[in-house]
Structures are given as structure tokens and as C-alpha cells.
Design a protein around this nucleic acid. Structure first.
Lengths: 170, 170
DNA sequence: TAGCAATGTCAACAAGGCTGACATAAAATG
DNA sequence: CATTTTATGTCAGCCTTGTTGACATTGCTA
């Protein structure tokens, strides 16, 4: 499967020589970094009896106020039963509000309550701080480069969803 | 904690202005990319009735032939009960061999069998392909930049372990 | 009106984390 | 040599968060 000695250049860019060792380091870095990436929010969530699944729901509801359940399911890529379990506790705990759609009354539109927004703020503050520090430590150019690599690593379907999110903020 | 409008430059590098929006995109990119990162191995593992935990064990045993259980525990950051469950199935299935230590007979040294190496190859082939393609698509400079950001994002303890791994290959 | 779509819910199951407790063998230490 | 510590394994039980399958309700749509 492509022995690391190159082949032909693609995209008209300079040929990149990537050794197995370089790739392995990248893979391990990804693994270890993801732990750090989630460590701070995890601590906050744990104190409330929540997990990462709650964080993800809160994040994307904040990101897209009034999104529907189906929409959220597509973004998160889990089953409705799995999401519903999380959503139910968040609604019961008064962090998320579910309003019946006006145009289509079958849909439920999801919003963060004040408490929900407060938790979202708390979670994103620590996570953003971690990412900000990492970007600064890595220096200029890292922001775009980092995101480009990540974007290229996504499955096409997820990339589309990601790009749709970042385009219009909705 | 550096208010986002900069303050004074650090590390003698150019000041980076990072908006909340940029940070949020980075965070979401990380989330979506991690899904892609694990998608290909996950498919292979599923066919064998294994999960990500098995992959991680296999990866680091391959990476450090003859490593001890304690060592592996520290790298993976899980409990011995959790690791043991995975390790037991891998040993039963003949993918991993556990040898009593010669110097210290309490230790068990872990090795991949031929079958284990074959699976490791299969798994790393698809994962490396994904990372390689992403690096190439992102262009030169991405490799180092990407790794620098990731490294800065790790918890200090994990960063030390990561660096120790990448230094001497052991 | 018939059928499809969006949502919720119940039940059951699995992976993979966790804690606590206990057992064994071997090393290390006084 | 006796004691303690270390490395490992194992049993039992719990939690979160995924999964599938089945079923009900409501409301849109053809």
C-alpha cells in the first residue's frame, strides 16, 4: 500500500516524502492529543454526572440554536435512541428546551436554557483555552495547516456537514 | 489566561489573533476528524469482534516489542482490569504472546505473534493511508505544523510519554 | 384516506471504561 | 529471615454510551 517513497505528485503540489515513522508519529500524536482535548471538559462534566455525549449535544445545540432532532442525529452520527437518552436528561435537568415546530409540528426544535448556556460557556471556555494555547505554541500558520489536515481526514459526508456548519454558522 | 486580544507575544513569535469562531472551527474539526481517523480500522476490527481498545493495545505492543503490562497501562491510561480484559482475548486468540520476564520474573513481556503482526499491518495500512492522504492534501509544512499543535494539546504527562516513544522508538 | 416522516420510548444487549477486593509470586528492604 | 512492596491476574458489579428491534403518536403529503 504505497511504500512511502512517494509515487507521483498530486494536486500540483510539491511531492511529500512521508516515512512510515512520520505517519506513526502523527497517528500517536492524534491519539494522545485527543485525550488532552477532552480532558478539561470531562472533569467539569463528571462533577455533574454527565459524559462526553452530553457535551456534544450541548455543543451542537449551542452552535445551531433551534436545530431539530433529526439534524442533530445526522451531525452526531448516533442512533436516535442513544441521543434521546442524553437529550431526555438534559431536558429534565432544565439545560435544554424542546419546542414543537411551528411550520412542521412533528419537529422538535432544541434550545439551550440559561442554565444550559452557562454550562456550555464553562465547557467551551476550558476547551478553547486549551486549543488557543496549542495554536499559539505551534506558531502562526498552524491554525490553517492544522484545520486543513483535519478536514482532509474526515469522511466526505462528515466533511460536507462540517463545511456547512462553518459556512453560515447555522 | 490570555483574553483573545493578544497581550504580549510569546516564544518570540508573531502574535496570533484567534477569534472564538476560529477556535470553535478547530474544535469541531478535531471532533469530526477523529471519527474519520478511526473509521477504517474500526471496520476491520468489527469483522473480528474487536474494538478500538484492541487496536490500541496491538498498536503499542507492536510499537514497543516486549513492553511490560505496567508500561502499557501507563501509555494507554486505563485501569489494569480494563486492559486485562482486552489483553486476555488477544492472548487467547493467539495474536499476543505474554512471556515471563527474565530479569524480573513478576513482569510479563508482551509480543505480537505472526497473526498479531498481520492484523497490525492490516490496521496500520489503512490508517496510515488516511493520514498520508490528509498530509498530502494539506500540503508541505502540514506535517510538522499538525504534529506541533497536537503535541501542545497533550497533557504534560502524556507529552512526556509521547516524546519518549518517538525519541528512541522504544 | 393512505402512507410516509419525525419523534419518543421500551427492552435488551455489548464494549469498554470504572472501583473494590482478593490472590499469587517475586523482588526489595530492614 | 521476615516483612513489605510490586507486578500481575481475576472476580464481581456498576456506569456511559453505543447498538438493534419493535411499537406508538402525531402530523405532513400525495
Amino acid at each position: 500500500m504505497a511504500e512511502g517513497h512517494g509515487g507521483t505528485p498530486q494536486h500540483g503540489e510539491t511531492l511529500l516524502f512521508l516515512t512510515d515513522e512520520q505517519l506513526r508519529k502523527g497517528i500517536e500524536a492524534f491519539f494522545f492529543a485527543y485525550k488532552g482535548f477532552t480532558a478539561d471538559p470531562d472533569r467539569i462534566l463528571e462533577a455533574r454526572g454527565y459524559g462526553r455525549a452530553h457535551h456534544r449535544a450541548i455543543h451542537f445545540i449551542h452552535r445551531s440554536h433551534g436545530t431539530t432532532v433529526n439534524n442533530l442525529l445526522a451531525i452526531l452520527g448516533v442512533t436516535k435512541q442513544s441521543l434521546n437518552r442524553v437529550l431526555r436528561t438534559l431536558i429534565e435537568d432544565g439545560l435544554v428546551e424542546s419546542r414543537v415546530g411551528t411550520r412542521d409540528k412533528r419537529e422538535r426544535h432544541l434550545y439551550l436554557t440559561e442554565d444550559g448556556q452557562a454550562l456550555e460557556q464553562e465547557l467551551s471556555a476550558v476547551q478553547q483555552a486549551r486549543v488557543r494555547d496549542a495554536f499559539r505554541a505551534a506558531g502562526p500558520g498552524a491554525v490553517a495547516g492544522f484545520r486543513n489536515v483535519l478536514e482532509a481526514m474526515m469522511d466526505p459526508e462528515m466533511r460536507r456537514r462540517y463545511q456547512r456548519l462553518t459556512e453560515n454558522g447555522r
